[in-house]
């Protein structure tokens, strides 16, 4: 009984370490591939469109509802201390520093990591990856690098758009439901929002974008056989990307907090 439990624990530990090692090697290969030509501009452009542009609706909707709910929550909390006036500034700071990048990142992870893992996983099981190699094309440079670069560049833009829409959501609720004056709300938002609030969120967005695409590509390239293998790769990519985003968010927040 005890031996069996220990053996199971040992197997799980070895599997975890093997997974971490494989992930680290994949990261190193991706970074190495970024530094060597050729660079596939057409693939990069296509990835920018699918990862960035087509994620705008989901990020925008998430942001507007989050900003609106945040305004109500801050008002409810602030009213206990007669501090209702902080609603505009806290909505702006909360969206820019935390909720914009994290919720935006999680929504993009759900949409993009799954899509990348399913696409590349299907390519793997239908031998399209092998076909790429026989056509003298490195799959890391052709598939992984464009997606990782596109996500790293486009997620901060999505975060910036999400921040703006989220703040607008707070403004709508603040002025329409909570009775704030339009001009005062906007003035408080602008006055208290600092450059670093926005910049730290954008840096988080870039890191999250990198992690989302890298995770999607990793699980796609390592997909098992058949529909079940691709399904498992897709699910694992979303779960891993989400956990990595939350872990990276804490580490980055800690680093920014200490700086």
């Amino acid at each position: 009984m005890i031996t069996g439990t220990l053996a199971g624990l040992g197997r799980a530990t070895l599997a975890l370490l093997a997974g971490l090692g494989a992930g680290a090697i994949f990261l190193a290969r991706t970074l190495a591939a970024m530094l060597r030509p050729p660079f596939y501009a057409r693939e990069f452009g296509h990835a920018l469109l699918t990862i960035g542009y087509f994620s705008l609706p989901v990020v925008g909707l998430t942001a507007i509802f989050t900003g609106a709910a945040l305004a109500l929550q801050i008002y409810a909390g602030g009213s206990r201390f007669e501090a209702e006036a902080v609603v505009p500034s806290i909505v702006a700071i909360g969206m820019a520093r935390e909720l914009g990048p994290v919720l935006g990142g999680l929504m993009v992870a759900a949409r993009v990591a799954s899509s990348i893992a399913a696409e590349i996983g299907t390519m793997k099981v239908t031998e399209q990856i092998d076909a790429l190699v026989t056509l003298s094309t490195d799959p890391m440079r052709y598939l992984t690098v464009p997606r990782v670069l596109a996500a790293t560049l486009s997620v901060p833009v999505l975060v910036a758009v999400g921040d703006s829409i989220g703040i607008f959501g707070g403004y709508l609720v603040g002025t329409g439901r909570l009775g704030f004056n339009h001009a005062v709300y906007l003035q408080n938002t602008v006055d208290f929002l600092e450059f670093w609030d926005v910049a730290s969120g954008l840096i988080k967005g870039a890191v999250f974008g990198f992690l989302i695409a890298l995770t999607g590509c990793f699980y796609g390239m390592n997909s098992g056989r058949g529909a079940q293998g691709v399904g498992r790769a897709t699910k694992s990519a979303v779960v891993a990307a989400s956990v990595l985003i939350l872990a990276a968010n804490y580490l980055l927040t800690e680093a920014f907090f200490s700086a």
Partner: peptide, 17 residues
């Protein structure tokens, strides 16, 4: 690349992109 440029391959399922 030069090595692989000498080959062509027809895959079982076509493996078309």
């Amino acid at each position: 690349d030069a090595f692989l440029a000498r080959f062509g391959m027809l895959f079982q399922g076509g493996a078309l992109f």
